[in-house]
């Protein structure tokens, strides 16, 4: 995996795009956040930006939701250059105030043990890197992304800095990732506006649709092991979510494959294995393994669970 070469190793899209500004971020792991000191980063900055307060708006309903944000796992280390950032279109300070543009923000991730099952988990770092930034408001994900950058933070921010934050968050929160390359395309009229972004979207969308199809293809009957999540025990001490091929946890953030991947990374963490046991009722979704495990974890309060019912023996999923 080359780090000195600045030109990209393999073109990302078939769509014709003009060359962009290329930056190389510092790859030294001890210097990940250097240069971001003048911008606040943290959960307290999660929020929305109101009309009149934003410098730039990217994506959203004005462009018919044709923009996208995507963190993609690649298998070939020779496909990406770690720390390379390309901005096709204007940088943040070149965008006139109160301009709304369609855009794409595509990150490619690689690690020797990183697989597509880790994609959802690793993508969280990308979201954190953006949402936690002072003055950046973000709603939605993938192709429903809608984001705004405030007037107050705009002089201190750039797409390069945002990329640095994304890369730093991903590498910090998911050390299984070792290389991150980021590409922005700002859909100005010169580049072709929404049409160009839509074209890139059509090329990229099949990748995550394939992943979603894979997740949808397995059923509860196909596995013997479910997973549970205890991340929210701090606010709900008698609660644990159950994740099976068919159901998602309360937060909706984890999928069955993601739990499998996270459990492999940290077997003693917040994801635990939940042997299915015997299937008592496949339609209501009652399994002996689930009953036993959650009985233990709910401080012996609840004994029977119907995973697919919202009327009888409901779970707190």
């Amino acid at each position: 995996m080359a780090t000195e070469v600045k030109t990209e190793l393999k073109p990302w899209y078939k769509t014709k795009l003009p060359p962009g500004k290329v930056y190389q971020l510092e790859t030294d792991l001890d210097k990940l956040w250097d240069g971001l000191e003048d911008v606040g980063i943290g959960p307290r900055y999660i929020g929305e930006i109101r009309k009149g307060y934003w410098h730039a708006e990217l994506g959203g309903p004005k462009h018919n939701y044709k923009s996208f944000l995507y963190a993609e796992v690649v298998n070939d280390p020779n496909e990406i250059v770690d720390g390379r950032v390309e901005v096709i279109g204007p940088e943040l300070d070149e965008i006139p105030p109160e301009t709304s543009l369609p855009f794409s923000l595509h990150a490619k991730l690689w690690g020797p043990e990183l697989t597509e099952d880790h994609e959802e988990f690793a993508a969280r770092g990308m979201f954190m890197g953006l949402m936690f930034m002072e003055g950046v408001g973000m709603i939605g994900a993938r192709d429903t992304i809608w984001t705004r950058i405030s007037k107050e933070v705009a002089p201190r921010l750039s797409f390069k800095k945002l990329s640095q934050s994304i890369r730093a968050s991903v590498l910090t929160s998911a050390p299984i990732v070792e290389a991150v390359e980021v590409k922005w395309v700002l859909g100005t009229p010169e580049i072709g506006g929404v049409k160009t972004i839509e074209s890139i979207l059509e090329e990229t969308k099949p990748k995550w649709e394939a992943l979603m199809a894979k997740h949808a293809a397995i059923a509860d009957e196909d596995v013997d092991l479910f997973y549970g999540c205890t991340l929210c025990k701090m606010i709900a001490p008698n609660h644990a979510c159950i994740i099976t091929p068919a159901i998602v946890p309360y937060c909706g953030v984890l999928s069955f494959y993601t739990c499998k991947a996270i459990h492999a990374i940290d077997p003693h963490g917040y994801i635990f294995e939940l042997p299915k046991g015997e299937t008592i009722d496949p339609i209501a979704g009652r399994f002996t393994g689930v009953d036993d495990a959650i009985y233990e974890r709910s401080d012996h309060r609840h004994k029977i669970f119907h995973l697919h019912s919202s009327i009888k023996y409901v779970t707190t999923n």
Binding site: E48, R50, K51, G60, P61, I139, G140, T144, W146, G252
Partner: peptide, 16 residues
């Protein structure tokens, strides 16, 4: 519920 909350963002008409 989640889809509804997201869609709400879209339809709030921001005025002056």
């Amino acid at each position: 519920g989640g889809a509804f909350q997201t869609a709400l963002h879209e339809i709030v008409e921001e005025g002056d």
